[in-house]
Design a protein around this nucleic acid. Sequence first.
DNA 1: ACCTTGTAGCACGTTACGTCA
DNA 2: GTTGACGTAACGTGCTACAAG
Length: 344
Amino acid sequence: MELALSLGDASRSLTNFTDKPVKIKDNMGFCMGLGALIKEKSQEKTQQQEITREDVRRASSDPPVQLDLLPFSPVQRYPPPPPSHLRFSWLSENFCRLLDFLWVIFDLFEAVNLCEPAGSNRVPEEAGVSSPNSGVSSFQMELSLQRNKRDFEMTMNEVDGERASSRASDDDENGLTRKKLRLSKEQSAFLEESFKEHNTLNPKQKLALAKQLDLRPRQVEVWFQNRRARTKLKQTEVDCEYLKRCCETLTEENRRLQKELQELRALKTCQPFYMQLPATTLTMCPSCERVAPTTTTTTAANATTTVNGGGSGPNLSLSDSSKQPKLNNNPFFQVQGHANQVAS
DNA sequence: ACCTTGTAGCACGTTACGTCA
DNA sequence: GTTGACGTAACGTGCTACAAG
C-alpha cells in the first residue's frame, strides 16, 4: 500500500482524507509543529483510551500555540520546540484545522510507508478508516498524540498558568467525542446572577468570571451566548402565546360586534322612520383589526352604543362601556410593552 | 479619505451529550 | 436495560464592527 503525500498543494491533497474538504486560504509549503498540548491528559490517558480530534483541536486552538516555520521536509516530523519569539496567537480556525490534519498526515505517512509504530498492533489499513463525523480516525489521532507526547512535554513548561488551570476540568473527559461538561449548580447560579446584571460580557468580565468559576473563558462566553439564545426563545414563546390570546380576544370581540351589527340592521328594518337617528358607529374591521367610523342609523334605544360622528347627529352618551372597543385596554396594543417587560 | 485584511463578538442553527421519566 | 424527550454545552457559519496597515 502506497500513500502519496503532497503538501505542496495542500488545498488539493488534504481533501482526499477528510469527509469535508479542509479550507485552506494559502498553500503552505512549510513544516509546522505544535508546541503545546494537553500535559495532564497525555499523562493520564491509558493506551486503551483514544485521544480524539477534539483534544488536538482544542490544544491547537487555545492560545498560545507554537509553530515551527521550517522548510518542508518529511524528515522533520518532530521539530524541537520553537523559541518563544515564534509563538503565534493569531491562528485562524482553518489554520488550526490544518495543523490538526497535518499531524494525522504525518503519522499516516509513517505508518504506511515507513515503519510500524512502536507499540502499535494495528494494521495500517485501519489508519485509512475515517470516523463518520470527524473525518479523522481516532486511531490516527491516538498515534499522533502518543508519538508527539514527548515533544509536547518538553514545551509544557511554557504553558502559562491560566491556561493550565483552565484546562483542569478537561482531565476527566473520556476523549471519545467532543466534550460536554455539566456545570455545577454553584457555577450555573453564579453565571445566572452575572447574567441578570449584564447579559453581555466584556473581555475583562469574561476572564474574571472564568477565573472565579474555574472555567475556560470560552465556556463562559458560550454560556452567555446560549443564555441569550434561551432568553430570546422564551421571549418569543411568551410573545407568541400572548399574540394568540390577543387574536382570540379580538376574534371574540369581532364576533360580538358583528352580531350587534346584525341586530342593528334588523332593528333598522323594523323601526318606524321617525325613530331613526343619524349617527356614527364604531365597527371593528375584521381584516385589518382597525376601528372605522361608519355612518348609520339607529334607534334611540340603541343610541348608547354610538358616538358622535362629526356633528351630523346628536351627541349621544357612551354609557354602555362594555360595548365600546377598548383600544387602550386592548391587549393587541400592549404587546410591545409586554415584550419589554418580559425582556427585563 | 478610502480600501483591504485580520480579529473579535454576536446571532442563529445545529449537534451531541447528560438526565430523567 | 432500553428508549425517547428534553435541556443544554459546544460547535459551525455568517454577519458586523473595529483597528491597523
